[in-house]
Structure formats: C-alpha cells, structure tokens
Design a protein around this nucleic acid. Structure first.
Lengths: 339, 339
DNA sequence: CTTTAGCACTCTTAGCTTGTGAGTGCTAAT
DNA sequence: ATTAGCACTCACAAGCTAAGAGTGCTAAAG
C-alpha cells in the first residue's frame, strides 16, 4: 500500500493544488508548479497509476484529477506537514480568548468565534457532558410571590437556573429550604440525586415537599437538557464561500440539519476518534449528510468531563491549517479553563 | 392618495399572488384567480394607473407587475386582513413554550425556535436591555484555590456568572465578603453601582478590596456585555428557501452580517417603531443591507425593560401570517415571563 | 365614457449548436 | 524508463432561435 517517493510527491501536489484552486488538476499544472524534474507525460502515467490504486478520481473522462477520499486519507496520514499559525494570527486568537475569561459559556462562544473567523469553515463547540458531574451549590432565591429562582452551580463552574413555583413563604423559610437543599443535594453524584431526594422527601413531610420534588426533578433533567443546550456554532456563512456550494440546495439541506443541532451531536457521538485532532473524511463519516464533507475536531477537558471543538468543511479542506488551529484552540481552552 | 375600490382590490390581488408565487403577476392571472367581474384589458388599464401612482413596478418593459415598497406599505396599512393561526399551530407553539419554562434564556431560545419553524423567515429575539435594571442577588462562591465563582441575579431573573481571581480565603471569609457585597450592591440602580463600590472600597481597606473592585467592574461591564450576548437567532436556512436567493452571493453577504449579530441590533436601535407588531419594508429600513428585506417585529416586557422578537424575510413576505405569529409569541412570552 | 376584443410588439427563458481549450491516453522515438 | 507528438474527449461559454407570457394601443361595443 506504500507509495514510492515520486507517486507520493505527485499525490501531495494534486491534493494541495486542488485544495487551493478547487479545480481538477492536470499533469501540466503539476509539472509546472511543483517542479519534480519530470515531464507532464511521465506525471500522466503516474497519475493513471494513482487513479487505478484508488487515490485519485476523475470527474469525467478527460480533464484533470481530484483526490479521492482515500487520497485525502493518505495525504492526511503520511504526506501533510505541520504548519504553525503566524504570530499575528495566534496573537489575534489569544486576545479574543483573553477578553472573554468570564464564564465557561462565554469562553466557548469565543472559541467558536475564533475558529470561524480564522477559517472558511463551519465551527462548532460541544460543551462537556454532565454525566460525571456533581453539584457545587444549590440556591433557592425569592423571585416574586409564589415563585422562586433556583440557581445551580455545577462542579465545573457551569451555572444553570430556572424558575419554579413555590407556596408563599417568608424570606427565612426560603433560606431554610435553600440550606436544606444544599446540605442534602450538593456534592452528590448525579445518579444518587434521585435517591437522596427521595430520602429527603420521606423525612420532610412538610409543605416544602412539593418544592423539593421540583428541585430534584430539575436536577435530574439537567443531565439531558444541557446536552441540547450546550452546542455553539458559527461560520455558517463561511460554507457559502466554498465553490462546491454554487448551488443553493445542497447547502440548505445541510444548514437546516446543522442549525437544529442534532447533526453535530450525532456526529460526535457516533464517531470513534483516535488521534488528537481527529479527522474524518467524506464517506468515513457515519452521518449521511456529512458524507460529502470533512471534519477536524479536538477535545478539551473541563473537570472530569470532556468537550469537543471542531471544524466542518468541504473534503477539499486545508487540513494542515485546520489541525493547527484546532490544536491551538485546544491549548487555549485547556489553559483558560483550569480549575 | 386613497385608491378607489377596484384599484385596491387589484393591488391586493397582485400582492397576494406575488407573495404566493414569487412570479410577476399579469392582468390575465388577476382576472382569472380573483374574479373581479372585469376583463384582463380593464385590469391592464388599472394596473397601468397603479404603476404610475407608484404602487406597482415592472421588472422589465413587458411581463407582469410586482408590488413596489409603497404598494406593500399600502397593502399592510389598509388592505390586509388579520389571520388567525390554526388550532394545531398555536397548540404546537404553545407546547414548545410550555416545555421550556425553566429560565429566561431557554424561553427566549424556544421563542426563536418556534418562530423559525413556523415560518420561512429568519427569526430573532433580542433580550431586554439592562439599562434600567438593578441586581437582585450577588453571590461569591468558592471555586478552587485562588478562584471564586461570582453569580449575579438581575431583578428580571437573568442569571450571569463569571470566575474571578481572589486571594486564598476560608469558606467563612468568603461568606463574609459575599454578604458584604450583597448588602451594598444589591437593589442599587446600575448607574449607582460604581459610586457604591467606591464607597465600599474606601471603607474596606482590607485584603478584600481587590475582590470588591473586580466585582464592581464586572457588574458595570454586564451592561454592555450582555447586550452583545443576548441575541438569539434561528432559521437562517429558511432564507435559502426564498427564490430570491437562487444566487448564493446575495445571501452570503447578509448571512455574514446577521451571524455576527450587530446587524439585528443596529436595526432594532435605529428603527423607530409605531404600531405593535411593527413592519418595515425594504427601503424603509435604515440599515443598508436590509433594504431588500422586510422585518416584522414586536415587543415583550421583562421587568422594567423590553425585548424584541422579530422575523426578517423578503419583501415578498406573508405579512398577515407574520403579524399573527409575532403577536402570538408576544402573548406567550408575556404570559410565561410574568414576575 | 367605460369596457373589451384584437393585434403587433417586447422581453425573458430554455434549449440547441458550435467553437475553444484543457487534458487525457496511446504510440513511437530517445 | 522517459518523453514528444498526436488524435481524441469533454466541459463550458457564447451565440442563436423559438416559445410564451404579458403589455400598450386602437377601435369597436355597451
């Protein structure tokens, strides 16, 4: 399966030229731009071989070659060389991060912004799952008559809140309930919240039982809920820059699926990643609608759980650059998310 | 400026037909579909009059008429009849709301979703400005060594949080600081937060002064910050459904501007609204990039401040329906946001 | 005096034809 | 093994034509 040196060089040239121009690349162009010391005719022969081996495709009988999924895969695995972001660029990105060190959510939003502005692709950040989390704090605050604001701080610093109905009670009473909730439901692993709440309910047969039940339910619901909420995306307009989207219908379908959010989540769930900035190319993607695209994604840690950041673009993607940017943003996140 | 009955009927027919089909409408079509008891020739004459008066345009010398901005305006002001949402539809929307009565932010997100799914337009919700707001609660919670989580609850129930650096301190110390902050900075109008914080600083020359300063700064920053954060959008893919976007470049430009968010904010700031679901059509929009579109937007109240919900679509928009949906969502919001 | 039928004219759009250019595969010479 | 040469393929753009929808005007009819 190994390619001899010259074939490898030609494959590399084809991929990089096609990535740059978006046009099928011919033997002439390869000979001219990437001087390999051989004539177009020789390159033609080699390209015919590469096609037979499945690394290149032809859009139609005559006229240049484009890389196949396999060609991209070989390029990504063996041929591409790491690139470094320019000084200005990394400075630009870092400054964006620095200005947003407020809370986790803003930081993730900043990441999306950095990614989508630094590339021509769709950027996404999938917040960490809650599964392994406990709660750091639970507060019940008076909101208006008959309503209270429930504020919850997870151990990774993500804050959630909701409004619940409560029987009318004094400030002191509410503080009492609030303290009780804190004592019994904080620092308890999620799978035990339910039983703890039941315990609490059976002991407290007071008028607060309704409140306790509501809080417990909300705590439980957060597990799934927040998964649907914690997806940030940006740069949808970037996709329209790609020449492959000259016709609107193709993009529309994808956009719809992306916007609703389930798509990215599906991808991240079904995908089994291996290397750090993982790359999936075209048909390698499990999800149907993405089989014409590539995804480059990485991981960041927050507490005990992990989140994902990624770029979705055409297969004709600048992989070295995408990898460099994902790597850099991973670093930034892990740096600013320390806790 | 008033139009005689027949002209009005014809204008109405042209607008509604054009809205439905997207194709310039000719005299024949009007005569056939909206039986007005006159022949195409008569309608041709009337349409020529309407064109001269500025209510209709011709894309090119021969071939049907399309409404001008003025034509749409007249239609919207005088001709269109209110529509009601179907029972299923309003039930669908309300259920979406009901399932999301958790916190303000989820509710606003649900609104965007409802709006964009119920229409073919871009939906947006602009959260209420903070200007007139005070803070209901301020908490400083231990996060990790040297860091604390600052949680702030505004009087309208919006929760903000950020992480700040603090000198190492015990749980009791932090509670002391937290209480101090609460006593001095809650229920204080925003324009006084700064002076209050100064007072506090001058009295407390302790090691906590750094913390107090940070908190004060954050409180101040929220005013602008949250304006940039509190914009929710959905349904960008809807725009691609519109036949006017058969070519990609037009939409890309708009999408980019929209995604970055400043566009909608600008519109809402520059626009002076009058009626409740306000409608601005084409050139009536102050913002350059929107002069080819129309916006229908309404207001909801949250505490002392107000937010906006709206739809952005082509001038060829189904105005009666857009108005009905905006109205309905306004109601929903005002119902579920009571405090 | 308003309405209508008839007709010549305009303009867009889709489909077809043609020419050009980029690129290929094959063969024969180096 | 490499390369030059050449015939061949195919996409794409440009130009052309025919069809169709719609108009404005004129003259007849109510």
């Amino acid at each position: 399966m190994a390619l001899d040196e010259r074939k490898a060089q030609i494959l590399k040239a084809v991929v990089e030229d096609y990535v740059k121009t978006g046009l099928p690349v011919g033997s002439r162009a390869v000979a001219r731009k990437y001087r390999l010391g051989v004539s177009p005719a020789t390159i033609r022969n080699e390209m015919a071989d590469l096609e037979e081996m499945g690394y290149l495709d032809k859009p139609h009988t005559s006229s240049g070659r484009i890389p196949s999924d396999r060609g991209y895969r070989f390029y990504v695995d063996e041929l591409m060389t790491d690139v470094r972001l320019s000084r200005e660029e990394s400075a630009m990105i870092e400054s964006l991060f620095r200005s947003k060190i407020r809370d986790v959510v803003s930081l993730l939003k900043a990441t999306v912004k950095a990614l989508s502005e630094a590339t021509d692709y769709l950027a996404f950040v999938l917040g960490p799952e809650y599964v392994t989390t406990t709660f750091e704090a639970v507060y019940l605050l008076p909101a208006s008559v008959g309503r209270a604001l429930l504020v919850i701080v997870s151990d990774v610093g993500v804050v959630e809140n909701c409004i619940i109905d409560v029987p009318p009670m004094s400030r002191e009473e509410m503080e009492y309930v609030s303290n009780m909730l804190r004592r019994h439901l904080c620092h308890v692993s999620l799978d035990q919240v339910h039983t703890k709440a039941q315990e609490l309910l059976s002991r407290e047969t007071s008028r607060y039982s309704e409140v306790i039940a509501q809080v417990a339910e909300y705590l439980m619901s957060i597990t799934e809920e927040s998964e649907t909420e914690q997806l940030f995306m940006g740069g949808t307009a970037n996709l329209l820059n790609q020449p492959e989207f000259r016709d609107v219908n193709r993009v529309q379908d994808l956009l719809e699926a992306i916007e609703n959010g389930s798509l990215i989540r599906n991808i991240m769930i079904t995908q089994t990643h291996t290397t750090d900035p993982a790359i999936t190319i075209g048909e390698e993607n499990e999800v149907e609608k993405v089989k014409e695209f590539s995804i480059v994604y990485g991981t960041f840690r927050l507490g005990q759980s992990a989140g994902r950041i990624g770029l979705l673009g055409p297969k004709r993607m600048n992989y070295p650059r995408a990898v460099a940017i994902i790597r850099y943003c991973e670093q930034m996140l892990n740096k600013y998310l320390v806790r």
